Simulated assay, not measured.
Amino acid sequence: MATVRDIGETRKRSDDMILVGYFLSRCTDFSDGKVSRPPTSLGVDSWNGAYDLFFDVLAEGRSLQQFRHTLKGTRDIFDTLFDNGRKGWSEGQKRGSQLSARDRAVHEHWIRNSDEDLFRKVREFLVEQGRHRNPDWTRDELIIALDYHLNHGNFDPRPQSEEIGELAQRIAKVGAALGLIERGLLLRTPDAIAMKLRNFSSFDPQYTDNGRKGLTNGNRLEVELWEQFSGRPDEVARVANGILELIGDSDAEILAFDEPEFEASEGRIMTRVHVSRERNSTLVKKKKYVALRQHGCLACEVCGFDFLQTYGERGREFIECHHTLPISSLGEHGKTNLKDLALVCSNCHRMIHARRPWWSIDDAKAALIGANGSRAQS
C-alpha cells in the first residue's frame, strides 16, 4: 500500500487535511459488508470523487494526482482504528501504532463526538453549493484578506494562529451576509485563507525583493485588487471596515433584492447597500418633490434630459436617483440624506456605473462636455 513518503510527498499535511482523512476513514460506508465506499453524506460514488471535493481548499499547491495520493494516505493511516472493511495502513499492525502525535490528537478529540458532529465540521470545507464545491472568492472576501495583508505585515501566516482564526470568522460573516453560507459556519478554512494571503505576498515587493516568491497561482481578481489598493493601505482598511460595519447594520439592505448587474470596486455588499438606498421609495419621492418645488421640473443633473418634456405625460415624474457619496464611505454613513442623492436619467446612470471605478456626477458631466466638444470640432 502506498504511503505518503512512497509518492514523494514532502509537504507537511495540514491539520485540516488530517481531519478530513480521519472523517473519510471513520465514516466509510461499509453497509453492505462487502465494499468500502465514501461516506454517504458526501454524495459521491468513488473515492477519487470524494478526494476531489476537498481539492480547492486543501491542495496547497499540490497537483490533483499528488493531492489524491496524500489524502488517500492520510485516510489509510486511520483505517487501523475502525472496522470499516479496509485493511488500513499496514495489515497486522497494532491498532493506531502508525499514528503521529497530530493524527492521534485528532482521533482523541473527535472520538468523543458523533459522526454527525464530525461531518458538520468537515462540511465547513465543502459549503453546499453545486456538488459541495466552495464558491469562488468574492471581491468582498478578498478585500478583507488584502486589508489583513497590507495592514498587518504578516508574510508567513500560520493557519492555526489566533489571528488567522479571527480573520476566518470575519470572512465567514461576509459569506453569510451574501447568502453563500449559513451563519455560524466557516466559508473559508484557515488553510485556504493562509494560501490566499500567500498569493498576495507573491505580488508584494516587500516580500519578493528578498528572493521569496509566495504562491504564484493568484487569479485575475486578486491582481486587480492588488493594483487598486496596494499603494493605499488606509483606503483598503476603510473599505474592509465599512463592509463589516454594513453587515452588522444593514442585513435587510444587503439581502433584500436581486444581485445588481454591476459591482463596485468595493465589493458586492457595498454595491447592494448603494443600490438599495438609490431605490428607497420614500427618499426618492422626497427628492423628486424637492426638485419640483425648486426647479419646476425633473431634469437629469448630468445631461439635462427631461422625460416629461420628451415623452409627454408618460414621462411625468419619471427619473432615477443616484447615491452620490463615495461607495467606500457607506459604512461610515448609516443614514442617507436627500443631499446624498442626485436625479439622473437612465442613460447617465448606466454610464456612471458602467465600469470600475464608478464616475461621480462631475466625472459624468466632464465626459459629456468632452464628447460634445470633440463632435463639435469634427
Rank of each mutant, 00 (worst) to 15 (best):
G92Q: 04
G96Q: 04
L99T: 04
S100Y: 06
R102W: 07
R102Y: 08
D103C: 10
D103L: 05
A105L: 08
V106H: 05
H107T: 01
H107V: 03
H107F: 14
E108A: 12
H109N: 10
W110T: 06
W110I: 06
R112E: 15
N113S: 11
N113F: 15
N113K: 14
N113A: 10
N113M: 12
S114H: 10
S114T: 15
D115C: 08
L118P: 03
R120K: 14
K121R: 15
V122E: 02
E124I: 01
E124Q: 12
E128M: 10
Q129N: 13
R131V: 10
R131Y: 08
H132S: 13
R133Y: 10
P135R: 10
P135L: 09
P135I: 06
D136Q: 09
D136M: 07
D136P: 03
T138D: 06
R139Q: 08
E141C: 09
E141F: 06
E141Q: 14
I143D: 01
I144N: 02
A145G: 07
H149S: 02
L150D: 01
H152P: 01
G153I: 00
N154I: 01
D156A: 13
D156P: 00
R158Q: 13
R158T: 09
R158L: 11
R158N: 12
R158V: 14
P159W: 03
Q160G: 10
E162G: 02
E163F: 05
G165S: 11
G165M: 03
L167M: 03
A168I: 01
A168N: 01
Q169K: 15
Q169E: 14
R170N: 13
R170P: 02
I171E: 02
A172E: 06
A172P: 04
A172Q: 02
V174W: 04
G175C: 08
G175Q: 05
A177R: 02
L178C: 08
I181G: 02
E182W: 08
R183C: 07
G184L: 11
L186V: 05
L187I: 15
L187N: 04
T189N: 15
T189R: 13
P190W: 00
D191T: 14
D191Y: 03
D191W: 03
A192R: 04
I193R: 00
A194I: 01
M195C: 13
F200N: 00
S202V: 08
D204A: 10
D204K: 03
D204R: 03
D204C: 08
Q206M: 09
Y207C: 04
Y207E: 04
Y207M: 05
T208E: 10
T208A: 10
D209H: 09
D209P: 00
N210A: 11
N210D: 14
R212L: 15
K213R: 14
L215W: 12
L215N: 06
N217V: 00
N217Y: 07
G218L: 05
N219L: 06
R220L: 12
